[in-house]
Design a protein around this nucleic acid. Structure first.
Lengths: 331, 331
DNA sequence: GGTTAGCACTCGATATCCTTGACTGCCAAC
DNA sequence: GTTGGCAGTCAAGGATATCGAGTGCTAACC
């Protein structure tokens, strides 16, 4: 643990570096209000902070920049209380969700854009998995002689669909019977628990089984919306880093498991390599779960360089996740 | 029009520049097989080509690079016949579509990844609009006291859905009646032509009207899949250009209208500012329509720097669009 | 006439050197 | 423990020279 003065110095270095992206020297810190001490003393303290791994020096005659450990300490102990949300931001988020309507997918997509606008970072919104949502409707529709589609409407308004192949020439009657049977069997259940009792007719049962299997398959799919990828072009000056980060963001399952993993570990910030995704080791991720009625339905997060504005990101992600959860609760 | 030798020189410059991204000098061209002429002569010709606007010189003592006009001439008159598809590519595309199955959305998404892999450029796939597809099924499902969702299953296997708000407390019976009425009224029609005759019951009719309106709304939505955005990070060295291009690619409606516009004008390549989208003026777009049974259902395209490999891009986009069309034709 | 060799010239790129200035670390004095 | 002062370090920036790729022009050539 660091004494008060070291903490104050570390805090000042982090904040200065976040806003300038330049290594910060002892005299800047000494001049900064709040630390009534000469630059020489600051230097001594910084040397200790470097030894202990909180700061690093790009080269001898340069100032210090925070290490991942430094950011971690800042986030855990020094970041100004979360209350710090700008009231303008609160209003903006409020307005956004007040105006939001229509399809859930659309809203989640726009939420990621909102986060990008507010934080100027890439944003991720992971929507609720289908499996836990109650089923409101189900239907099987023939597409061709050998193909049909099963459609499931869920309580949160999302619609999942998947194709099924019809092995032999199934009659329209069988499809319609199966569709009705399916609808009544699944209504009120969830995709995870979906089960269909035998109807007595063999071909209808086969259809139902196939449909449930197909629907179950979609339940595991994640709904993820990544926005603001263009912001990473400015965040790093090494082209190769930009390429790697963008490429990683394109792989949605990586993003989802990254976010889910952080949330599951009860963390709200993953700094640098903490999240374990090597190509994103120059990035930090700030996340918050979206909770509705005590249930964790999804997550929102922002992704930016490790020198991102953590207090702002934390506050923004928090308020957005909270409002989004409230909005989802209303239906 | 250019004489044969000028054309050959222009072609050589374009090809060399495409592969090296460096200004190309007269001696390189003179050394290149096919032009049995000294560098001095090439210089004379290049001076003329520059005067006529086909080439440009970054600075006095540098080689020449093609202008947009130069690329245009190359594409129109010099690009090796389209036949040039690598047989390995043909096989790869064939394999891809042979293995493709499941949801149409999924397949289109993967198609954009395929194009990215094959050309190493950003790729765009614009899927069929819903409005022209025949309706196979329709349903209204209650979500809450004041909300319901209308689901429409289309012949191509896609499923459109939109929420409708229920003004007053509509009975379940009314919803079910309307749902059934809607299903029988819309089956076989298209979203564009969707119409519902009166059922006799006022509240049912109101529901049907709202449902059709909502469904119609979704019909105008475009389905667009953009992949390979990370490739643009390497394509340009100016960060600002990268940011602009990425930002533009994130605005899907811009991309759609860009691609649609080019296809509608009967073009297959838009070079530089030809497409009129200012932030993409450093990019070229190569597109091909996806045609099924003579009908233009969508488009595929790649987007890269103006110094992209046009023959390869043209060939790849052509074969992918053709195979995709064939695949969609099979259902 | 078109083609070519040759030459002077241009100018970005690269290298070298120097200066500057923003740092640090250390030490002696407070 | 704190501080002022000073020597040392090193990247960044500027000036200068060199290099070399490439040009345009001209005179000779076929």
């Amino acid at each position: 643990m660091l004494d008060d003065r070291k903490a104050a110095i570390l805090s000042a270095v982090v904040q200065e570096y976040i806003s300038t992206a330049q290594p910060v020297g002892s005299s800047h810190i000494a001049a900064a209000s709040g630390i009534g001490v000469s630059s020489a003393t600051v230097r001594n303290e910084m040397a200790v902070l470097e030894q202990e791994g909180y700061l690093a020096q790009p080269h001898t005659s340069a100032g210090r920049i925070p290490t991942d450990k430094g950011y971690r300490f800042f986030v855990d102990h020094l970041a100004t209380p979360r209350v710090s949300v700008d009231s303008a931001v609160t209003r903006q988020v409020g307005d956004f969700f007040a105006a939001a309507h229509g399809r859930l997918e659309e809203m989640l997509h726009q939420t990621s854009d909102l986060l990008t606008r507010l934080t100027n970072n890439a944003a991720v919104v992971v929507g609720p998995k289908a499996e836990a949502s109650t089923i409101r409707g189900a239907q099987i529709v023939r597409l061709s002689a050998t193909a049909a589609t099963v459609v499931v409407v869920l309580g949160n308004g999302t619609v999942e669909n998947e194709m099924i192949e019809l092995d032999e020439a199934v009659t329209d009657l069988a499809i319609n019977t199966a569709s009705a049977h399916l609808a009544s069997a699944l209504a009120g259940s969830t995709l995870a628990a979906a089960q269909v009792a035998s109807s007595g007719d063999e071909s209808v049962d086969a259809l139902c089984v196939a449909a449930v299997a197909a629907a179950r398959g979609t339940a595991a799919d994640d709904h993820v919306y990544v926005g603001g990828a263009s912001t990473v072009a400015q965040a790093f000056d090494a082209v190769e880093v930009v390429r790697q980060v963008l490429h990683t963001l394109e792989q949605q399952f990586v993003v989802v498991s990254l976010v889910r993993d952080i949330v599951d570990r009860g963390m709200s910030v993953a700094i640098g390599i903490e999240h374990g995704v090597e190509p994103l080791s120059a990035c930090s991720v700030v996340v918050a779960p979206v909770v509705v009625d005590g249930e964790h339905l999804g997550s929102v997060g922002v992704l930016g360089p490790t020198r991102m504005n953590y207090p702002q990101a934390l506050a923004t992600v928090d308020i957005v996740s909270e409002r989004l959860g409230r909005r989802l609760g209303e239906g």
